[in-house]
Simulated assay, not measured.
Amino acid sequence: MFIADLPYAKTLRDHLVRSIRFALEEDLGSGDITALLIPAQQTSQAQVITREPGVLCGREWFEEVFRQIDPTVTLNWLKQDGDTLLANDILVELRGNTRAILTAERSALNFLQTLSGSATLARRYAMAVAGKALVILDTRKTLPGLRLAQKYAIAVGGCQNHRLGLYDMFLIKENHIAGCGGIANAVKRAQEIAPDKKIEVEVESLEQLLEALDLPVDVIMLDNFNVQQTAEAVKLTQGRIKLEASGNMDLERIAELTGVLPDYVSVGKLTKDISSLDLSLRLVG
């Protein structure tokens, strides 16, 4: 997958450039004093390897770091975003100014290893429902400043994106319902505010589900329903509306739901409980 494949590609590229600019300001400050140990005109070759298996994601972030530090450093990628990696695989070969390579190293790896960690976890979840009529969605539980980057990683891993933020669809939850005086009032108000936006409503009981089924909504979120309650919700709905199961979802709970089959399962762990892939950059000549 490439960034260009996504409907939010332009926004993501803008975020990418800004987030890397900030990351470099944070890391470099007044300048990389340790890199000054190296002769200014010295050039080197380097490789990035992975020390563990996973899924590669974040090539364009890695490239942008070097573009902002020194665009003359050349990168020869041996792997693509979405590729399955084995321990000790070489991901990319670099050639250029030694100081530039060492200055850019940590920021470039931080983006690459973080996004690869998200994609690797997403791939595990995608494989868990392979062949099933069940879609895994991400959430807004993302690292601050990396929302769209992590959502790209989730797509690379094989899962799907939920809403991008608070602006592109309504998700009417418990507190919104309480503040509006009921589900019907909240839905009516949403239609008045933005009639072209998708509406999703969270329900906490089968009684609320029945109420929401009579309203003009696109998706109903089943909040912390157990397997039996989810099965009953699927039966009551009879395909009239899309159902999303949510609430502390993990691979074990999803395995139970594959026999019940709501339409979607949203998983906060995809972006909030990630472990970065163990990557390393080494000078080789």
Rank of each mutant, 00 (worst) to 15 (best):
L112P: 03
W77Q: 09
F22V: 13
I69E: 04
V73A: 07
G58W: 08
E105L: 02
L37Y: 07
G31P: 05
L24C: 11
D81E: 02
R59W: 12
N110P: 05
L75S: 14
Q41M: 12
L115D: 00
L94I: 09
T103R: 07
R59L: 11
D32K: 11
T11W: 11
W77P: 09
S19T: 15
R106G: 07
F22S: 14
N88Q: 08
E105S: 01
P53Q: 04
R51W: 01
T98V: 04
A100F: 05
G117K: 00
G29E: 11
I38T: 15
L12K: 10
Q68C: 12
L85Q: 14
V92H: 04
Q80C: 12
S107I: 07
N88Y: 01
I69H: 05
L94C: 05
N97K: 07
I38M: 10
V65P: 08
L94R: 12
P53I: 01
F66D: 09
G58T: 10
G58C: 11
E63D: 15
R95W: 03
N110L: 00
E63G: 13
G117A: 00
L16N: 12
F62V: 12
D27N: 06
R95T: 09
P39F: 03
T50W: 01
Q45F: 02
L16Y: 11
Q80S: 15
G29M: 12
G117Y: 00
D14N: 09
R99L: 12
D81C: 04
T84C: 06
S116M: 01
E25Y: 01
R95C: 08
R95N: 13
E26I: 03
D27P: 10
I33Q: 02
T103E: 03
S44I: 01
N76A: 15
L86T: 13
I101N: 05
L78F: 06
G58A: 10
V73F: 01
A108C: 00
H15W: 14
Q42F: 02
N88H: 06
G58E: 10
T11I: 09
V73Y: 02
L102K: 03
V55W: 07
R51K: 14
T114G: 03
V48A: 08
S30H: 14
A108Y: 02
K10D: 15
V55P: 06
G96Q: 03
P53E: 03
L16I: 08
T84V: 09
P53Y: 02
R51E: 02
S30R: 06
R59Y: 11
Q45S: 07
N76S: 15
T103S: 13
E105Q: 05
D83Y: 08
D14Q: 13
H15L: 10
F62T: 13
A23G: 08
G82F: 04
E25D: 04
D81G: 07
E93T: 00
D83F: 08
S44D: 05
D27H: 05
L91T: 06
Q41D: 15
D32R: 07
P39H: 03
E25G: 04
E64M: 12
G29H: 13
A100G: 13
D32Y: 10
L109S: 00
Q45T: 02
L28Q: 14
P39T: 03
V48M: 06
